[in-house]
Design a protein around this nucleic acid. Structure first.
Lengths: 257, 257
DNA sequence: CGACGGCTTGAGCTTGCTCAAGTTCAGTGG
DNA sequence: CCACTGAACTTGAGCAAGCTCAAGCCGTCG
């Protein structure tokens, strides 16, 4: 199980257990640590067995024990309100830290569900807090991480505030692309792990609208869409729409709609 | 300037400078501290002169130095996107901590604007970090504070996801009411410090819609509306609408719309 | 192969947006 | 003190973006 160099599609799969060897360390807790400190971190972090698609990592209301770092795969976080309606709060890719919502009350405020087979590092919050007292860099990094999630949510709020549905979808696709670029993956090829329904919910619309918009972006030459496999053909045009360019025409240099 | 006992409308105005004597301490950083630790905190916290309505506390992009705790008055935080559109991210009342968005990058990610004459405590982040290392309770409290803001934003995201405008407004009014209750103020009387436009922006609609909804809630006997002075007449009905009760009729026991 | 879930596409309708006119109120100056 | 002004708010009418409902398609899995 430790050596599986056969799977070279994503080199993340080759990662060994230790934080020092992890390709994600720049995005994760050890970002600012020196080697010695990293070893101490290594002692408390463990890798879990993979979670299968559709399974829960934690549930709304569960007692808080661990933070998790996504190593491969992806998750969604969902808050379920009183009357049974769900709201997708975010999608979490490799390098993202999930579970920070629970720091406030010692209980998780949302449910985390794997969108595909997903591997994670488990970081016991108490343990990391204890060693963080002795490692100022780690302390700081923890603050930054929580705050980063906070800022991400604020950006999402700004997205939700935008009235036009096609702008919201463009922002979403662009952000996925940018996140892939940060992970050194092809930013033009999106392999969506989430359903149209998840995307729609996340962006505050219905899934039919998402589907129609994919069709429209395809017709306008912005995307190549094949179910969950999406190729960005015109990143600049997409960016223009995301930025709120008044007419999509200018953006795509096309006339059909 | 130190003694202005004339202003007894809100007893917050009578607060002395020290954290120990502050009526808000339960909501603020010192929540979990013992007396001795509080004295150390006192040393770094200072009270600023009031900010007038419409003035900025900090601007998007400004270098991060301080957190602020609202003592009296209120603020809005706003993110301005590329194409000039603004998004109101939140409203901040007495006891709220603002500025936490800047922890991620050492720069503020949004602009904070006073909605009325507002007094604040200024907490230098570096200083508090330094003493937090020695006071575990304070450390923990800082984490909780950031995480609390994060959770609040997630709740707001769930609100924005709800399709019906009247549900969003009901949630907003209910939350204002609940926050007033937590501050030991009359929860049925809302003195809105923000404009219809601010509310609309915050909830992702246009100001005319907010105005119309106030009218509808008034007609349905839920509210008494007099410009910015709003009295909640039927809190339970409002809660039902906020929770997504399918028909407003049931909630308000009225027929007119 | 059939059945099911996820997706696409169409037609019609409703909510909330746009544009526009009118009202109220606080503040200002005569 | 009152008239004037401008900002904030209210209200109306018409329109369209996106929702609802519905039917059909495609790919996967048992």
């Amino acid at each position: 199980m430790t050596k599986r160099s056969s799977e070279n599609v994503v080199d993340i799969a080759q990662l060994r257990r230790s934080c020092g060897a992890c390709a994600l360390s720049q995005l994760c807790l050890p970002a600012t640590l020196v080697h010695d400190d990293m070893l101490r971190l290594d002692k408390v972090v463990s890798t879990q067995r993979p979670i299968e698609a559709g399974h829960e990592l934690y549930t709304d209301g569960a007692v808080f024990h661990n933070l998790y770092v996504v190593r491969s795969g992806s998750l969604k976080t969902v808050s379920n309100s009183a009357n049974g309606t769900e709201q997708v709060l975010g999608f979490h890719l490799a390098g993202d830290v999930v579970g920070l919502d629970a720091v406030a009350n010692d209980r998780h405020q949302c449910t985390a569900i794997a969108l595909e087979r997903t591997t994670l590092c488990e970081v016991p919050f108490n343990a990391i807090n204890t060693i963080a007292v002795q490692i100022p860099g780690l302390q700081q990094q923890l603050y930054r991480l929580i705050s980063r999630e906070f800022v991400r949510d604020q950006q999402h709020l700004s997205t939700m505030g935008r009235k036009q549905a096609h702008e919201r979808l463009a922002i979403f696709l662009k952000s996925l692309s940018d996140r892939r670029r940060a992970l050194k993956l092809d930013p033009m090829l999106l392999d969506l792990s989430m359903s149209r329904d998840d995307i729609a919910n996340y962006l505050g619309m219905v899934f039919e609208t998402v589907s129609r918009l994919f069709g429209r972006f395809r017709d306008d030459g912005l995307l190549e869409v094949n179910r969950r496999s999406v190729r960005i053909l015109d990143y600049d045009a997409l960016s223009l729409i995301a930025a709120g360019s008044q007419d999509e025409q200018t953006a795509s240099q096309k006339k059909a709609r």
